[in-house]
Design a protein around this nucleic acid. Structure first.
Lengths: 126, 126, 126, 126
DNA sequence: GTGGTCTAGACCACA
DNA sequence: GTGGTCTAGACCACA
C-alpha cells in the first residue's frame, strides 16, 4: 500500500502524505474509509509512530482525513478539495508550458504530446 | 540581476542556482561569459559567500558553468545541455498531464489552455 | 434526538454532553424528566456504553441532571443554572467583541450584525 | 513575552501558537521581524525544542510566519490574513449572539453591552 | 486498542 | 548558529 524510498530526497513523512493524497484523490480510498492505525502502519513500514503521526496530522490539516479520538483516522475527501487540487495542477501546468516554450518547444509539439496519450475524457470525432 | 526572496520557501542557494539556470537557458548570458565573482555577489546580495560558493558548485556539477582556477567562473552552456533540459521538461509535462486527466480534466481543456497562451512558436494556418 | 457527527473534531462524549445541555437549556426537556437509559442510548447510537456514562457523569457534575440509584438519570435544570449559563455566554461575548474591535471592526458594524438577525426579544419601536 | 500556563487545558504548543497569533494580529510584531529562535525560546520557557518546532510549523502552515533555513523564522503577516481572521471572528460572533438570544438575552441588552465598551471605531453623534 | 502530546537526544542541511 | 527530520519511549484522553 505504502512504500518508503530511502533514496528519495523527500522526508519520509512527506512521502507518506503524498502517497495517501494520491490514493484518496484517485478514489482508491473511499470517504469515511478507515486509515491504517498509526501503530500498525508504523510497524509495517518499520518506522517510528511519530513519523506516521506527523503525516496524518498534515493530511488532517489539508482536509484529506479526519480523526476520531479512540477510534482512528478516516478519509474525509470531498468534491471541493478535488476542485482545489485541480486548480493547483492547472497552475503548475501553465508554468510548465511556459518553460517548455522558452526552451523552444512549439505549442503544436505540446498538443501532439497530449493527443498521443491513451484515455482522457476528450471525444475524438472524425 | 539576482534577487533573493526570503519569503520563498526554497533555500537561498537554490534560488541563486535556479535564477542563473534560467538566464543561461534563455541566452541572457552567453557561453564563456564571466560569472560575477563569489565575493562581489556575496556583498551585493548581503549574504554569506559560502552560500554563493554552494550555488556555483551546483551549477558546475550540472554543466551550466565551468571554473578556471585563479580566473573565475564562466558560462558553459551548450546546445546539448539545452536538449537535455528540454527532455526533462517534457517528462514533467507528461506526468502533469496524466495527473490532470486523473482529476477529470479533459485533453481538450488542456489543449485549449495551451492555445490561449500568447506567443509560442507554433504556426497557425487556416 | 441525539446525532453523532464523526467528522466533528470533538470527542463523542462531548458532543453528547453538548446536545443534552442545549435541549435542557432550551426547555426541550423538562425538569425531572427521565433521561434515556445508558444502555438504550448506547445501542441506539451504536457506541460504547462507557462513552454515554462519561457524558452523563459530566452532565451531573455540571448540574444539568441528577442520578437516582436503580431508577435512572433525570433532568435537574433550574433557573439558577440558566442564569449561570447566561453569564458565561455574556463573558464570551465581551471577549469576542474586544477581539473584533482589535481587528478593526467598528461597534456600529457589530450592532448592525445583531440588528440584521431575525427574531430576538428586543422590541422595535418607531 | 510568552507565558505557559500548565493548568490551562490546552496543549503547550497550542498556547504558544495562540499567543504569537495574537501578537502578530495586534501588530505587536511587525512583518519580517525575526521570531525568537527555537532553541532560545525552548530554554527560556524550559520546554523541549520539539514543542516549539511544532508550534512554529503550525504558524507557518497558517501563514503567520515564514522560515528561512539557516537564518530563522520571520513574521509574514499580511492584510489578506487579517481579513480572513476578521471573517472567522464575525462567524463566531454570530453563533454567540444566537446562543445568547436562545437564553433570553434581548438584542438591546447585547447592543448596550457593546456600547458600554470604551474605544472602538464607531463615531458617537448626538 | 485508538490517537495526541511531550521529552530527550541524534543527525542533517543551510548560512 | 539556524531550522527540519527522525527515533525511542513515556503518559494521557477517549472508546
Amino acid at each position: 500500500m505504502i512504500v518508503i524510498d530511502y533514496r528519495d530526497g523527500r522526508p519520509i513523512y512527506e512521502q507518506i502524505v503524498h502517497r495517501f493524497q494520491e490514493m484518496i484523490l484517485k478514489g482508491a480510498m473511499a470517504p469515511d474509509e478507515r486509515m491504517p492505525s498509526i501503530r500498525t502502519l508504523a510497524i509495517e513500514l518499520a518506522i517510528n509512530p511519530n513519523t506516521i503521526q506527523k503525516a496524518y496530522t498534515r493530511l488532517e490539516q489539508e482536509g484529506f482525513i479526519y480523526s476520531v479520538k479512540g477510534k482512528g483516522n478516516f478519509v474525509a475527501y470531498s468534491e471541493s478539495l478535488r476542485e482545489k487540487k485541480r486548480e493547483d495542477i492547472m497552475e503548475q501546468f501553465l508554468e510548465l508550458v511556459k518553460k517548455a516554450m522558452e526552451l523552444g518547444v512549439s505549442k503544436e509539439d505540446l498538443i501532439e504530446t497530449i493527443r498521443s496519450l491513451k484515455g482522457g475524457n476528450s471525444v475524438d470525432r472524425g
